[in-house]
Amino acid sequence: MAKVGIPRALFYYDYFPLWQAFFEALGHQVMVSDATNKGILEDGIKRAVDETCLPVKLYMGHVQNLRDRVDYLFIPRLVSLEEKHFSCPKFIGLPDMVRGCVPNLPPILDVLVDLTDNKKLTRSSLLELGKLLGASPAQVGGAYQAGLQAHRSYRARLKQGWSHEEGIRGSRPETLAEPENLLRVALLSHPYNICDSWASNNLMGKLKRMGAAVTTADALSLGYLRQKANTLSEQIYWTFEKKLAGAAMHYLETREVDGIILVMAFECGPDSLVTELIEREVRDKLPVMTLCMDEHTGEAGIMTRLEAFVDMIVRQKSRQEAAAAKEWAEA
């Protein structure tokens, strides 16, 4: 039984249950890096190129946090997760970037996922990974099915409104009846920008404390999001950004939320264009704000902007209600 390390960063929030089930089905122990802290961030900043995005810097820090206590590091190369759609170039170069920047690493398991140009290679790289861990193709197939199963139930929980953290833990604290929230906000971003409460300055918690119910794009089904995204632009070829665009268009249409907050990492290439497109589409119809974050983002600045945004929505809402009441009285 080997110890397989999975950094608590980047697509951890999208695929951890799948990977965990896969490795455990093969009889290995999965280890996760510590929750982000100052030391991890500082290590990451030291290792990564200074002008790369915060999420990649954090990833490097988490790798360093794990490297001495595991036998293998699992760093997949996610090229394309669906036909003709891709992830960011940095995800594709990730295993190489980690090798180039973090010294004294255990062997890296870098399974390739390219469903556009290299479907065959994707399959064989998974089998190769199994071979490295001493598993037969049949065992790999079984483990893969177990992974998919875990992934499906994770997605189902997210759709029921569980947070990513609760979904990964697999349990949810018993709460009393949901409090009547003053307002509802959609927090649209890559999960790694908003689920890491330390790196995101606890954005989600802050909003909740202000009395807002927060929802994310992962609460909607992927097929639906893809279809919705096409109403904004059929050209979006990044899987993750397509989700965001789809969610924005969904909330614009249904008005299930009172406002949208887009969160992007400074330096994020796909987001720099797609959030612009979303903001331009939404801004005259629904309150929207873009928060751009990096390692220099201060908590006070975030707080001020959130408070201003929430105040604006509350005021707008009460004005609308007053107008509606007046109209009703006159009629």
Binding site: P89, Q235, P270, L273
Partner: peptide
């Protein structure tokens, strides 16, 4: 030129068009 790919280049025109129309 336009296209799908990984880098932003293929997506330029989509956003530039919107900016110019506005």
């Amino acid at each position: 030129a336009q296209g799908y790919g990984l880098c932003r280049f293929g997506f330029y025109t989509e956003v530039q068009q919107k900016i110019m129309r506005e």
